[in-house]
Amino acid sequence: MADGVVVTERKDEARDMRGLTYPFATLPNPGEATPVAPGVLWMRLPMPIALNHINVFAIEDGEGWVVVDTGLAIEETRGLWEAILSGPLGGRPVTRVICTHMHPDHIGLAGWLCERFDAPLLMTRLEYVTARMLVSDTGKTAPKAGETFYRAAGWDETQIETYRREFGRFGMAVSPMPAGYMRISEGDRISIGGHDWRVVVGEGHSPEHACLWRESDDVVLGGDQILPRISSNVSVWPTEPEADPLGDWLVSLERMKTVLPEGALILPSHGEPFYGVHMRLDALIRGHEMSLKRLERSLKEPKRAVDVFGSLFARPIGDGVRGMATGEAIAHLNYLARQGRAERTRDADGVDWWTAAHIEEA
């Protein structure tokens, strides 16, 4: 350890079965940090859910640090931030907080850090506004539109009652958001520690997700836009039931291939830093295309959204992830409908039945 920073030994790059390479041999321990690029530290915060961690980063900024993403607003995470602030960050102030997007594991402690250091919050407009909207649902009664949405997807009354009971939980893992923010947009360049970081926006996983690319040495803070081992959830939600986020996601992935260099070091929000961004983007696109073909073949007979989980997911879907699985199933179905490849009919009970418009042979 030097100056409060745990230096991870490097090994020969490990290549996985996907052709990606991982340059760092070990993970940072809770409350510690690993340098991953000049002036950039990687920290890893645990989460009490199936996806059990989030990576957050700190970038040297003169006498302080810019923090990128923050973890959930829970006591364990606050305690780890106390250790990080006094240890790896050396007691130096946080000058700015940047959140790649609005999900609670990314914005959870943004308000807490901003208030503590009187630091501004930087986000894209749609991410900030969507976060404020969802946080405001906490304590409210579930809307009828949500019940209609999940009934149409095939949920039974017990599952809909669970939706009513759990509505508004988004804000329970988010500290009070700053009342104002600084907007970042596609193509902006943010100066941090004398270096420019270019904003590259993606859509689909969230409305206006910001990646940050330091073009001088091709370091990319990828958020949830480019993950090495899993595909980010791409879902339709009751607030916009006719949305086509999968279409947005696929367009964004194709665009990233034209923007980001193959040699970039990707610093993702989950998993480990890696090289091989074009290969990974191709694999993500190919994975969804294969899922769409399986789904289309499964629609020879009418099915509800909950009936197609087996075509899309490799494991059984339990109650804890039913909402995300349903949202992702509808995202794929809506995409097929937009492409003229599937049709939907709502029955007298308010349930949607989907069938393939043209059956593709295996």
Rank of each mutant, 00 (worst) to 15 (best):
P245W: 05
E254C: 03
L227Y: 07
R229W: 10
P241N: 05
W249C: 02
S232H: 04
E240M: 11
G247C: 05
Q225M: 15
S231D: 15
Q225P: 01
I226C: 13
V251C: 05
I226D: 02
R255F: 02
G247S: 07
N233E: 07
G222Y: 01
Q225I: 14
E254W: 04
V234S: 00
D224W: 06
V234R: 00
S231C: 10
P238E: 06
S231H: 10
L246N: 05
S252A: 09
V251R: 10
V236K: 05
S235Q: 07
D248W: 01
P245V: 08
W237Y: 15
L253E: 00
P228Y: 02
I230S: 13
P228S: 03
D244E: 12
P228T: 09
I226Q: 00
L227A: 10
L253V: 04
V234H: 00
L246K: 00
N233F: 11
R255V: 06
T239E: 15
V234M: 02
I226W: 01
L246E: 04
A243Q: 05
I230E: 13
Q225W: 07
W249L: 08
R229V: 14
Q225T: 12
E242N: 11
P228L: 11
P228D: 09
E240Q: 13
S232A: 15
L246D: 00
G222A: 15
L253M: 12
L221W: 00
D244T: 11
V234W: 08
S252G: 08
Q225N: 05
E240V: 11
L221T: 02
R229L: 15
G223F: 09
I230V: 15
I226A: 10
L221F: 12
S235I: 06
P228K: 06
T239Y: 13
P245I: 04
V251M: 07
G247N: 07
R229A: 13
P245L: 06
D248N: 09
R255Y: 09
I230K: 10
S235Y: 09
A243I: 03
S235D: 05
S232K: 07
D244R: 06
L253G: 03
W249V: 00
D244G: 10
L250M: 14
Q225Y: 04
Q225E: 07
L227R: 10
P241E: 07
W249E: 09
P241Q: 07
R255P: 03
D244M: 12
L221G: 04
E242M: 07
W237D: 06
D248Q: 13
A243D: 15
P228M: 09
P245N: 06
S235T: 14
L221K: 05
L253H: 02
E240C: 10
G247T: 04
S235A: 14
P238R: 01
R229Y: 08
N233M: 12
E240A: 15
I230F: 13
P241M: 12
R255H: 11
E240N: 15
R255E: 09
R229Q: 13
L246P: 03
P241G: 11
A243L: 08
P228N: 10
L246R: 05
I226K: 01
P245T: 08
V236F: 06
T239R: 11
P245H: 03
V234E: 02
P238C: 12
